[in-house]
Design a protein around this nucleic acid. Structure first.
Lengths: 299, 299
DNA sequence: GGCTATATTAAGTTCAGACTTAATGATTGA
DNA sequence: TCAATCATTAAGTCTGAACTTAATATAGCC
């Protein structure tokens, strides 16, 4: 009978550009992969992988095996999860995808604690500039997103509200003055997060029923929000940041809000739950935990 | 991740009356079973088997695991079979159920040869007085049946025609005379196969359009047809036997037909194919082979 | 009470699979 | 042509899972 380990092995091969790459992925030496594949092929009396001519490719039989493997490995994982749930245990792999800033500063510490409390858990955190893009790459259980979402057909759960502010250091405003109206912002030095996916130089400001789009000409930009926050703290100008990022600074007076009457659209923090993955106990438990700690402002 | 070997192990336990019995079934010592079970339970942090109070029973978790195991192990076996079929190989387990007489004399030799020609085949022949009853017991691929069948929803394939005769040794008929009409049979010493399931003392004889049911009062009876044939050969009387059993004796003149104008209902030899089992190459190949050899009269 | 079968613990043995290193050959691209 | 990457073969190592034997505890049965 075919061994699921073989199926996992072949599945790993299928998504690697070469045997050597697969070996690196699996943390073994190339001969190990070569041998194991040869052994499997010999056992089945079938060729599974097309050697030569450039990149690694599966034969029809190999592809079929990988295709069928998915369901079987899935069923096995599901069963394992169910039994763990029945035992009331938090264990197994937990794959989280999160954006760089929020992930590193807020998710990582919670995940570390959660992992320490549940020794049989194998947490894996993948930070990305573009979580929604990574989503289709590998396996994942929970994806953390900050901001508006296209209407995906995926279970989502709001972890916390998150407003967006214009902020600056008191030192800067003391020197350069505090803008009273949006129009005055144009006279200031402004920093923005520069992303590929969104236009971050157009700020849709609202005050009661008033709406206006403010086009800013940023002096500073960076694709890492924390760097931008650092610049603001250093008094280099006015930046737009999420509440989660600067709440502590505001409380401590290291930063102050600019145009406090005006608000930017909310960018709530939500967790997407992979519909493909079973709702294992570890997933629900982690999301609960994350929601609790994020709302409480812990990090 | 739960290992299919664990699932097989637990499935074996589920159908055993005690751990010791399971150990015998698995060809290991009782401690091996005890340890392995303890290890599995520890790994899952769940109790799977109810110890004590007499016969072994599964807990709710154990039963659920066994239930789910079926589908997964089935899918794995199916995949294995499919890959073997793609490789054009005859291999794997082949479980045949057959009635005692026909199975021992006709099926066993063919299966032995077929197994020898395909070294990776693991043939297993289960002889039974009541194959259709055994059918629901364990796993099986092919069931050989001689005679009429209730209308089962199972693929069946006729392997050979098989008439039934009344026969006696020439020595006997020389001594006691040859009955000319069915009624005269009553004056003879008669032997029948005694079975629980069928009334074998009522012979539905037909000649052209004539039909009559002859009730016989058997002198000899045995539940093994070959014993009966031996008695007939030894000149003890008239017996009813299948063509497959006595064809050679008739040809050699060791037996002769009694009332050759009258015929008993046919009892064709059919193979039933387990619908649950995949149509693996080995199954089709074996049935083909059996059909060929049975028709050719080889043994 | 003996007899038997079952279940479990403890400790030692065994073996196959999976890996490693080392060496060689093939392919590709600068 | 050299350097680098990849693939494979050969040979040796290692480990842990699975099993064994031995000993002990327990329960049912005549």
């Amino acid at each position: 009978m075919i061994d699921p380990a073989d199926l996992r092995f072949l599945t790993a091969l299928a998504s690697a550009p070469s045997l050597a790459a697969a070996a690196r992925e699996l943390n073994v030496t190339p001969p190990a992969v070569s041998q194991r594949l040869a052994l499997l092929e010999e056992r089945l009396h079938l060729r599974l992988v097309d050697r030569g001519r450039g990149s690694l490719g599966l034969t029809a039989e190999g592809a079929y095996l990988v295709e069928r493997a998915g369901a079987i490995l899935g069923a096995l994982a599901e069963l394992t999860d169910e039994m763990a749930a029945r035992a009331g245990r938090i264990e197994g792999p937990l794959q989280i995808i999160a954006p760089f800033g929020f992930g590193r500063l807020r998710v990582a510490p919670v995940l570390a604690r959660f992992g320490a409390e549940n020794p049989d858990l194998r947490p894996r955190l993948m930070l990305s500039e573009d979580p929604l893009g990574v989503m289709h790459g590998g396996p994942w259980d929970v994806l953390i997103h900050v901001g508006r979402l296209p209407d995906l057909r995926i279970t989502q759960r709001k972890l916390a509200s998150n407003r967006r502010f214009l902020v600056a250091a008191p030192e800067y405003t003391a020197r350069q003055g505090l803008p009273i109206s949006p129009a005055e912002v144009a006279k200031h030095r402004v920093g923005v997060v520069r992303e590929d996916r969104a236009d971050t130089t157009l700020w849709p400001l609202t005050r009661q029923d008033e709406e206006l789009s403010l086009r800013v000409a940023p002096v500073f930009s960076c694709n890492d929000g924390e760097v931008l926050r650092g610049w603001a703290l250093a008094g280099h100008g006015i930046v737009e940041r999420s509440e989660w990022s600067v709440a502590e600074d505001l409380r401590a007076g290291r930063l102050i809000r600019v145009l406090p009457g005006w608000v930017l659209p909310d960018a709530d923090i939500v967790a997407l739950l992979n519909p493909r993955a079973v709702r294992a106990a570890r997933i629900d438990a982690f999301v609960d935990r994350l929601a609790a700690e994020v709302s409480a402002g812990r990090s």
